[in-house]
């Protein structure tokens, strides 16, 4: 099995590794870097629990090869806030009650982060579009939309 050297930036930190071709980006993050925030919910790109940002765009990390991450920038939920703090977005999720079991939450947060970076003032329809690929079995989704709406406003107000 050939190992491929890769160099990529993860949450602002430069990482170097040698990975087999068949290793997914999700496995690389979870098993090599111990960034276990992104979850495997289905392994088929259907649930969105493994959503991370690849060069700023949300992707399902279970369907990206680690070797495809070479030379690119990856962000995970662990990079959302500094140290032990919470980002505006994370706080909004808490305050709006957008969390129940928490398994879909890291993926939801990253889909929302991707949205807010390309659109600081999203409509509800745009929020729905951004997280339509993230399944949640607990909340019924309403509180999650409210949280993203609230975070968008608070992030705009801060600027």
């Amino acid at each position: 099995m050939t190992l491929h050297p890769i160099r990529l930036t993860v949450n602002g930190k430069s990482e170097e590794a040698s990975v087999p071709a068949a290793m997914t980006l999700l496995e690389f993050l979870r098993e090599r870097l111990y960034l276990t925030g992104a979850k495997e919910g289905c392994g088929a790109g259907e649930c969105g629990a493994c959503t991370v940002l690849l060069d700023g765009l949300p992707v399902t990390a279970c369907l990206v090869l680690a070797v495809e991450g070479d030379g690119r920038e990856v962000r995970t939920v662990e990079g959302e806030a500094k140290a032990t703090g919470l980002s505006v977005l994370q706080r909004a999720f808490i305050e709006e009650g957008a969390i129940q079991c928490g398994f879909c939450t890291p993926g939801m947060i990253m889909s929302a982060r991707g949205l807010l970076e390309r659109n600081s003032n999203p409509t509800d329809a745009e929020i729905v579009e951004a997280i339509a690929g993230n399944l949640c079995r607990c909340t019924g989704y309403e509180a999650i939309v409210a949280a993203i709406r609230r975070a968008a406003k608070e992030e705009r107000d801060r600027r």
Binding site: T36, G37, I99, F103, I109
Partner: peptide
């Protein structure tokens, strides 16, 4: 009252079994 388990969950630090 906000859930005490919420901060870990939004930070991706809640430890599920596969973690």
């Amino acid at each position: 009252v906000p859930r005490p388990d919420a901060a870990d969950k939004v930070r991706g630090e809640a430890r599920f079994v596969d973690d």
